Every structure is written in C-alpha cells, then in structure tokens.
Computed example of a mutant assay.
Amino acid sequence: MQTISPFLWFDNQAEEAARFYVSVFPNSELRSVSRYPDDMPGVGGTVMAASFALDGLEFQALNGGPQFPFTEAVSFFVRADTQPVIDDLWAKLTEGGEPGRCGWLKDRFGLSWQVVPPILGELLGDPDAQRSGRVMQAMLAMTRIDIEGLRAAYDGA
C-alpha cells in the first residue's frame, strides 16, 4: 500500500468520478465506497467517500460539498506513449469537460489532466536551441498533443 495518496474533494460526485476514472485507465479498480450514517441530516445514506486505483496508483475521493472546487494549480500528468493512446485519453477525459492548451484539459468534474508523450520532454530538451524552440512553439499552438506535429517542428518541416 502507498504511503501517500491523492485525496480529491468533490461536491457530490465522488463515486461517479471514481467509476468514470477506472473506466478510462487500464489496470484500474474501484476499491470501496462508504456512506454517510443514516442519522446525518441532509446527507444520511449518501456516498461519503470512494477509494479507487488508477493503473496501480491509489486515490481517495470525498463528497465534501461545494466549498473547495478544483483548480489548475493541481493536475494529473499522464504519460501517453503513442498517438492512439493520447487520442483515446483525450477523447474520454474531455467528454463533458474542456480542452486546454499544450496537452492540458479539464474533465467533466473540473479536474485538470495533462496527457503528454515522453518524446515531448526529449525534443524540448535537445541542446540545439533552434530545434527545441521550434518544438516549444509547436506545442504552444496545440491543444491535444500531436506527436507528428512535434517531430515535424523538430525537423524544421
């Protein structure tokens, strides 16, 4: 078991979000759902929390109310090795959400994600400032990351 785990505060969608996320990522599972005690006014019997794992990373989710919405200050970085994986994750996570720039997006629950191929870091880290600069400019013009577009920029095409 992990020592540190992301803890997500939802208004009232913790179970729905957990079920959605485990459907998006392989090797994932909903581990538990707990409910508020029946004698709690206004929330008795409703879902209090959910525990789930996404590709082995354990998460906790709480229905705590609307006081603390998600912001882009915290996002989940998803390594996506191929364009089909990027495209699939992008389509699923932006459904009901909104695309951002440079591989960032918000899902329908307001949680921010970055769907990024490892080659982006490799190309941006090239010691040739012109090549890496072209890749940076290409990335800044993208919403969903396009690997071939990055390679073309790197090659000066």
Score class of each variant (00 low, 15 high):
Gly121Ile: 13
Val43Asn: 12
Asp11Tyr: 00
Asp126His: 06
Met48Gly: 08
Cys102Ala: 10
Gly133His: 09
Gln137His: 14
Gln137Ala: 15
Pro37Ala: 13
Val22Tyr: 10
Arg31Trp: 10
Pro117Asp: 07
Phe77Asp: 10
Arg144His: 03
Val22His: 08
Asp88Ser: 09
Glu148Val: 13
Ser112Pro: 03
Trp104Tyr: 10
Asp126Ile: 07
Arg79Tyr: 12
Leu124Gly: 02
Lys92Arg: 15
Gly100Asn: 04
Ser32Cys: 02
Gln114Ile: 00
Gly156Cys: 08
Ala153Leu: 04
Gly56Trp: 14
Gly133Arg: 08
Pro84Ile: 12
Tyr36Gly: 10
Leu62His: 10
Asp39Ser: 15
Ser75Ile: 00
Met142His: 03
Gln2Tyr: 10
Val85Tyr: 04
Arg131Ala: 10
Ser32Gln: 07
Ile145Lys: 01
Arg144Gly: 00
Val22Thr: 15
Glu58Lys: 13
Asp38Gln: 15
Pro41Asn: 13
Leu30Gln: 05
Gly64Val: 09
Pro118Trp: 05
Gln2Val: 11
Met1Tyr: 11
Leu8Trp: 02
Val43Lys: 15
Ile147Arg: 01
Ala49Thr: 01
Ala129Lys: 15
Phe70Ala: 13
Asp155His: 03
Pro127Lys: 13
Leu57Ser: 08
Thr143Ile: 01
Gln130Val: 14
Pro127Gln: 12
Gly42Cys: 04
Leu124Val: 09
Leu62Lys: 05
Tyr21Pro: 02
Leu54Tyr: 07
Leu54Ser: 06
Leu150Thr: 07
Gly97Gln: 07
Asp155Leu: 03
Asp11Trp: 00
Gly156Pro: 05
Phe76Gly: 01
Met139Asp: 03
Glu29Gln: 15
Pro26Asn: 11
Val115Trp: 00
Leu120Asn: 04
Ala141Thr: 03
Gly44Trp: 03
Glu58Phe: 06
Gly64Tyr: 10
Tyr36Ala: 09
Ala73Thr: 08
Tyr21Ile: 06
Asp11Val: 07
Leu93Ile: 00
Gln137Trp: 08
Asn63Thr: 07
Leu8Lys: 05
Arg31Asn: 13
Asp155Phe: 02
Glu15Val: 01
Phe59Leu: 06
Phe70Val: 00
Ala91Arg: 13
Pro127Trp: 12
Glu72Ala: 14
Asp146Phe: 00
Phe70Asp: 04
Glu58Ala: 07
Asp55Ser: 15
Thr143Ser: 15
